[in-house]
Amino acid sequence: MNPGPWGILIIAVAALLLFGRGKISSMMGEVAGGIKAFRKGMAEDDTPVAEIERNSTAEPTTVDQAKDIDRSKDA
């Protein structure tokens, strides 16, 4: 069953009444921020496959070492 224009209008009004205009706009801003962060992360992940394979043969790192490496990348 495909909702018609009146069904979509009723759903939009109900969402506006439940959440309010400010809450909906802030949620859309958070979604946009998440998309931007995802795209930035994908752009930064340009590590060649050969380098990944070479690093995987090295001795394994502990969880604490991996956390330290992540923190140093964020800085």
Rank of each mutant, 00 (worst) to 15 (best):
S25L: 14
S72I: 10
A50H: 07
D68W: 01
D68R: 05
E59R: 12
E44W: 06
K40Q: 15
I11M: 15
E59F: 05
A14P: 04
G22V: 01
G20I: 01
A43M: 06
T57C: 08
S72W: 10
I69W: 11
V63T: 14
N2E: 15
Q65S: 08
P48V: 00
M28R: 08
A12K: 07
R21V: 10
K40M: 12
K36C: 03
T47C: 04
F19W: 04
G34V: 00
D45Q: 08
D46N: 14
A12F: 06
R71A: 13
E51V: 00
M28P: 01
A32C: 15
I35G: 06
N55P: 06
A14L: 15
R39L: 15
F19C: 05
G41T: 01
G34K: 02
K23M: 14
F38G: 08
M1D: 14
F19N: 03
T61V: 12
I24A: 01
F19K: 02
E59S: 11
G4S: 04
R71I: 03
W6I: 09
N2R: 13
G33V: 03
P3M: 03
P3F: 01
D70P: 04
L18Q: 11
T62L: 04
K40V: 14
A15T: 02
D64L: 05
N2W: 11
M27E: 12
V31D: 14
R39D: 14
R54C: 06
D45T: 05
N2V: 09
K73D: 08
D74F: 10
G41W: 00
M1A: 14
D74G: 11
P48N: 02
G22Y: 01
I10H: 13
M27I: 02
T57N: 10
T61C: 10
R54H: 09
G34H: 01
A15V: 03
P60V: 00
L17T: 13
A32M: 11
D46K: 10
N2M: 10
K73I: 03
W6Y: 15
I35T: 07
T62P: 03
E53W: 01
D45K: 04
N55A: 13
I35M: 09
I10W: 11
A75S: 10
L18C: 11
S26E: 12
A50L: 10
T62R: 07
T62E: 09
I11T: 12
P60I: 00
L9M: 09
G41E: 02
R21C: 11
V49Q: 06
N2F: 12
I8V: 14
S25F: 09
I52D: 01
A75C: 12
A66I: 07
A37F: 12
A75F: 07
K36W: 02
I11R: 12
F19Y: 04
M27N: 12
E53A: 02
A66F: 05
S56H: 09
I8H: 11
G20N: 02
T61N: 11
M1P: 10
I52P: 00
E44L: 11
